[in-house]
Each structure stands twice: as C-alpha cells, then as structure tokens.
Design a protein around this nucleic acid. Structure first.
Lengths: 211, 211
DNA sequence: AATTACAGAGAACAGTTGTTAACTGCATGG
DNA sequence: CCATGCAGTTAACAACTGTTCTCTGTAATT
C-alpha cells in the first residue's frame, strides 16, 4: 500500500487542487460543457497531458467540483433548519447564513446553480444526488419539530424539497445581486427581505397544513 | 419598404427556423456556451457562412430561442393562476397544464431551465426579463383575487415570484421523469402529486399570510 | 545504493473552430 | 425586361481542440 502522505502525494494533490481552482475561475463565464482541458492546464501553467493524471475528462473534474462545493455543506444545512424556539429568528439566521456563504464562495454557488440543469449528465446526477441528501437531512430535522406531529413521511419530504429548492434559489438570487455593480447596498437588502418573506410564507403554510 | 411576405422572405424565414430547430436539438445534450455555429449549419445542411445572414452569433440565436420558448406563453400563465371558485381544482389544472406543456415542448423547457443560469450573459438576461414579466402578470391576477385583500404590492410580487419559480421547478422535474426510461408511469404520477402538494402548501400559506 | 513507480513535459496527429473575402444565382422593384 | 439586392456558396486562414506516444526527473521502495 502507498503512503497517504509524502512529498510526492502532497505535490500531486496541490496540482489537482490548482486544476480545480483554475476550472472554477474559468467557469465563471461559461458552462462546463464548453470547458476545454487545455484551457484549464494553460491557466495552471502545466502541460495538457498532466490533466489526465488527475481526471479522465472535464466532466470528471466537474463531478469533483460538485463534491467540493456541496460535500462539506451538510452540517450547515442541518443546523439551518434545526428546530428553534423562535421560528422568525431561525428564518432570519438562515437567510444571513446563505448570504454569508454566497459572499464567501460565489464561484461554488454559481457552479452548482449553472450545472444543476447543465449539459453534462454525470455532473447533473452528482448534484441531484447531493440535493436529495440535503432534502433527506432537512426532512429528518423537520420531523423532530413538534409542528410536524401528524405529518406523513411523504409530506415531510415534499416540504423538505421545497425548502432545499428555495435555499438554492435564494443563493442564486444573492449571487445575481453580487454581480450587478449598481446599487448593491439597497438591492441586496431587498433581495434578503423578499427571500425571508418567501420562507416565512412557506412556514405559514406548514403550520396550517393539517386543516 | 420591402414586402413583409414574398418567396424571398419566406425562404429566409424557413432557413432561420431550421437553424433554430437544429440548435434546439443539439442543445439537448450540451449547453449554449459550447454550441458551435458550424455545428448548427452542418445539421441544417447549409454553408457555415449562411449563419451570419440570420444571427450575429450563437448567443444571438440563444436570445431568439428564449423568445420562441417563452414569448407565447404569457396568456397560458395568466389563465393558470387566474382566480377560480375551487382553488384545489385550479392547482390540479395548473399541474396538468404544465405536464402537458413539457410533454409537447420538452426541448424548449430544457433550454430555458438550462440557460437560466447558463454561461451566456445575454441569454440569461433575456430569460430573467421574461420571467420578471411572468411574475408581474401573475401578480396582477393574484391581485384580482379577493384573498389578496389587504396585501401590499411588494408581498404580492414576492408571492408571484414564488409561484413562477415553483412552476419552472415543476416543469424541470417533469422533464427529468421524461428522460428516465425506467418506470415512467408511476414515477410521473408521484412527481405530479408532489408538485401539486407543494403548490397547495404555498396556497395555504397565502390564505393565512395576514395573521 | 540500485530499482521501480509515476507526475509531468514535449512533440506531433488529425480534426475542429470562427471569420474573412469574393463569388453565384435568382426573386424583386423600377 | 433589365438592374439591383441579397440569401447562400466556396475557399482559405490561423488558431484551437482532445488524445497518443515517448521521454525525463525524482520520490519512494527494496
């Protein structure tokens, strides 16, 4: 068995990460299906053939980017929808948390929003799988809440899906306001306010579902 | 002034439409940002340079496709959310209408879902503008409903946006079930059921918003 | 100290791309 | 009926693409 660390492995990981980073930058104004492997290696400053040491294809690299963008996000999602005393405050914190994440990792958010329905099947599937995991986790958290007493499993999952979609839509909206160099202060605040109200409306629907 | 019709103009429109149709087919498994102009002309059986007689670039063609996909959809949207006696039946009809539209024009729906967050700015903008129009129209219809008495203009618009996003998400979901050649009968029925329940939950939230 | 494994370089390939220029044929308007 | 406008063609261009094969240097193993 080969050592998991060492000068050799470390350098390889470093190059691999450089490829991922460069790809993410290039994907800011194009889709994955038009991303060329030479384009990526050129940006890193490495020979085109080096690409194959890390990825079979750009689609393969895309799948790795999905893992990077969404893989470490599960704890954050769980915490976001965890039951709380004050439901209004939970929503406010959720919106702030999303805004913060988008500001910290705009390229990742853009990538997921773009490739969720993009032209590369394996990447679409990888994103769908991650979002399904999110929905399952959100469902678990919702089930803990006393408000969910009497809900069927299917209804919990449909609400969880609604929440996940809404979160992604909100993140994408924040991203758009980040891109517009106009009056970001006021507009971003209004986007946050609208997103919060939409979540609030869904929560209202949730509380009165069993009538 | 040139005649609006005539053998000459008609033939030109025919070629133009052939380019749009061919592009739509090619876009079924790639994104617009990777669509080549030669690729499109080759599919039509016309010289590459002929492309320039109709479009400045593939991005330009994309904008035309947005108009084709969404331009004629406004009356349908209005009718879908128009006030009705039985709100439950309206939702059922809306879901059926969406399912029918996706079945009739899958490539158009795929294109819009894919390019809404895609890598081509002018196309993104065109889609955003159309969806904003939809939201405005939905808002108008919602305002007519007695349920909306006492609602602020901003809240009406935020609800309209929620509905529009939900419709597109539902359409995209139906599209996915169409692509999967597995058991489409049962799965498609469940997708419709889930989508209907999500809309119902939003409607419940709407009725209890002013509490 | 000698051998092996392997990340990355280099060169070459056949095929593709967008764009330009000059052309041809034919429907149209005078 | 003839001159013009213009949709579509042909040919050529430099630049780019993914992939293959061969080679090199050096870390890791023995």
């Amino acid at each position: 068995m080969s050592h998991t660390s060492g000068v050799r492995q470390a350098q390889k990981q470093k190059t691999r990460q450089a490829l991922l980073d460069a790809a993410l930058v290039l994907l800011e104004d194009q889709s994955l299906s038009s991303l060329g492997l030479r384009e990526v290696t050129r940006a890193v400053g490495v020979a085109p053939t080096a690409f194959y040491r890390h990825f079979r294809s750009t689609a393969d690299l895309g799948v790795a980017l999905v893992e990077e963008a969404l893989g470490s996000l599960h704890p954050m999602i769980r915490a976001t929808v965890a039951p709380d005393e004050d439901s209004a405050e939970r929503i406010a914190r959720a919106v702030e948390l999303i805004a913060g994440h988008v500001a910290a990792h705009p390229a990742h958010v853009r990538f997921v929003a773009r490739e969720r329905h993009g032209g590369v099947r394996p990447v679409r599937d990888a994103i769908r799988e991650q979002l399904a995991r999110f929905a399952g986790e959100v469902k678990d958290e919702l089930a803990k809440d006393p408000v969910s007493r009497g809900w069927s499993e299917a209804d919990l999952l449909m609400l969880a899906g609604l929440y996940v979609d809404q979160m992604l839509a909100t993140a994408s909206l924040f991203l758009e306001t980040l891109e517009a160099p106009g009056a970001p202060e006021e507009e971003r605040r209004r986007a946050a306010e609208t997103a919060a109200r939409q979540m609030r409306l869904i929560s209202v629907g949730r509380r009165h579902w069993l009538d």
